[in-house]
Design a protein around this nucleic acid. Structure first.
Length: 561
RNA sequence: CGGGGUGUAGCGCAGCCCGGUUAGCGCGCUUCGUUCGGGACGAAGAGGUCGAGAGUUCAAAUCUCUCCACCCCGACCA
């Protein structure tokens, strides 16, 4: 491809709207353009990458017996009503105005529709069906460029099995295929597995990439691979130690003291001697939550523990329930359910609110003074705490979800009546799995992980072109002729080459080449040409070598194998 | 949906507070010439409903109101 006539609108300056690195670089390198919030056109250069990623996915899916479908994005609403997901998706589902159709945000319904009409016997299974297509979700807030869009490419596959054991087989095939796909794409990823309870159920794994642009927060152990969403993550942090003797309870006048920090400052005590109180309303009943020191309540864990609806109490409710405003609430004399974080278990000589404004209580012994107390893990794991599996240090960071494999079970087959007959002629719902990969996210994550201040650094697998051929002075006949012959030779040998044949300054071309980031740059300049040499630059290392023209092809093939 | 911010040429921005000729600057674009190994130089040009609408005023990019779009934080996220 000749750059002089190729639609690659590169940008020297960073567009105002882009914040995330991958988004900035995709815009600057002319791979994408935004049409509206969360809606992007993928331009020719970007689409070459998308196609490479898709092809890797396709190969690995086919290798485990997957069959590729092309499904409608426009779906009859009635199909979605069968599974009650019109309601479940709510505003996230796009509705068509002039026809009873919806735009598919995923394809369980369509796939199950096909399955129920045909997969009638145990002999028809297993099946692995997949598609690589555009999905539509009316995200309340699209963000981070292509990472969270209202329209995006997704590889989705669905498996149909006769038993849970067979579902395990299909699931494990996907687990292996996904690892191969992300390995081949050159991504540094990790897996948040069901063993850490990420989804609160059995049989789900999320494939994640560490990134500040990520929307999930995970705790990760570098030495044993323990990984869990902070919503459920646990660490080895132990409960505090109980003093040998308990003091008696005493009231302290603490005018204006509202926070744990202020209390510690006022009483000259350590925050580990404090129990922080938060009141939550659980299905209209108040629950007092006690945390050690200044730790925040992990509301996800709390919701899971309590069930039903859970919300923090409003300021006026707090007064009514406890008799005090936030800052002076405590467990002693609190009339209602009290749950403390495990770190507070059986502690004594604690300070907490007195349920009377501007007063706190000291000398609290939870065993003696709060007999109805319950304990639970309600913490948010912090970086540096010990891993529960191997005692190494955990790291907490943001991550992007690249893929998700999930044992669906019979949810859709039952609601859509997809049943089969087993060997005994008995009817059962088909047992399903579903497995997704965000295709643009693979591209974005790769760029997040492979760039420098100049631009993208592709490796040969995903690079839109293997070689970026730069002719330095396109008015010099020798340079032109040499470039043309190199360009033709590479094309004839099926080595994808992008030829910068524009009449422009050397620096201009070098910077564009570094921005676009092809693995190899072949630079043809007058001076070196006089001694018969061509320059070869490796984008990743910046290393430059001079190669005689007749050895160029060999040198390139050596680099890109 | 709540909070914050932005909207002026293809891109990046100034001008707005304190209303007043023909709305500027850098990059990019066109033409000509010079230059040609890290975003060159000179000359001449093209390109604007100042996000939209309404209002105040002799006069609005500038003040007021309404709406829209986009970004960030939060809520949400099969």
């Amino acid at each position: 491809m000749r750059l002089s006539n190729y639609f690659v609108p590169t940008l020297k300056e960073t567009p105002n709207d882009a914040v995330v690195t991958s988004h900035i670089l995709m815009l600057r390198s002319g791979m994408i353009r935004m049409i509206a919030a969360g809606i992007y056109s993928i331009l020719p250069l970007g689409y070459r990458v998308i196609r490479k990623i898709s092809e890797i996915i396709r190969e690995e899916m086919n290798a485990i017996g997957g069959q590729e479908f092309h499904l409608p994005a426009l779906n009859p609403k009635e199909l979605w009503e069968e599974t009650n997901r019109v309601q479940a998706f709510g505003d996230t589902l796009f509705h068509i105005k002039n026809r009873e159709y919806v735009l598919a945000p995923t394809h369980e319904e369509i796939m199950t529709y096909h399955a129920r009409n045909v997969l009638k016997s145990y002999k028809d299974m297993p099946q692995i069906w997949y598609q690589i297509q555009t999905k539509f979700r009316n995200e309340p807030r699209p963000r981070s460029g292509v990472i969270r869009g209202r329209q995006f490419l997704m590889k989705d596959s669905y498996t149909f099995d006769t038993t849970w054991e067979n579902l395990d087989i299909s699931y494990n095939l996907h687990d292996k295929a996904y690892r191969k796909i992300f390995d081949r794409c050159g991504l540094n990823y990790f897996v948040v597995g069901a063993s850490s309870g990420a989804m609160g159920g059995t049989g789900s794994e999320e494939f994640m990439v560490k990134s500040d642009a990520g929307e999930d927060t995970v705790a990760y152990c570098n030495s044993c691979g323990y990984a869990a969403n902070v919503e459920v993550a646990v660490s080895n942090l132990q409960a505090g130690k109980r003093d040998d003797s308990s003091k008696n309870i005493y009231e302290i006048h603490t005018p204006g003291v509202k926070s744990i920090d202020e209390l510690c400052e006022f009483l000259k005590i350590d925050e580990t001697a404090c129990a922080k109180s938060r009141i939550y309303i659980n299905d209209s009943r108040p629950v007092l939550i006690l945390m050690l020191g200044n730790e925040e309540v992990n509301e996800s864990k709390l919701e899971k523990l309590l069930g039903g609806s859970v919300r923090p109490g409003h300021p006026d409710e707090l007064k009514e329930i406890s008799g005090a405003d936030a800052g002076s609430i405590g467990p002693v004399g609190f009339n209602g359910r009290i749950i403390a974080d495990n770190r507070l278990k059986n502690l004594n000589n604690l300070f907490s609110g007195a349920n009377k404004n501007d007063y706190h209580i000291g000398g609290i012994d939870l065993m003696r003074d709060v007999p109805q107390i319950e304990y639970a893990d309600l913490r948010i794991v912090q970086s540096g705490e010990e891993c529960v599996k191997c005692n190494s240090k955990l790291e907490v960071f943001s991550a992007i979800e690249l893929g998700h494999i999930f044992k669906l079970g019979t949810k859709y087959s039952e609601s859509m009546r997809a049943f089969f007959l087993d060997e005994k002629g008995e009817e059962h719902p088909i047992i399903m799995g579903s497995y997704g990969i965000g295709v643009e996210r693979v591209m974005a994550c790769f760029i997040e992980q492979h760039h420098d201040e100049k631009g993208i650094i592709w490796d040969k697998t995903l690079a839109p072109f293997k070689v970026h051929l730069v002719g330095l002075n396109m008015k010099n006949a020798d340079v032109i002729n040499t470039c043309e012959s190199i360009y033709n030779e590479l094309n004839e040998n099926n080595i994808d080459v992008l030829f910068d044949d524009r009449e422009a300054q050397a620096g201009f071309k070098f910077n564009d080449a570094d921005l676009l980031g092809m693995p190899i740059q072949v630079i043809v300049g007058e001076k070196k040409l006089k001694s018969g040499m061509i320059e070869l630059k490796i984008r990743k290392t910046g290393e430059r070598t001079d190669v005689p023209l007749n050895e160029l092809k060999k040198a390139i093939e050596k680099e890109i194998g």
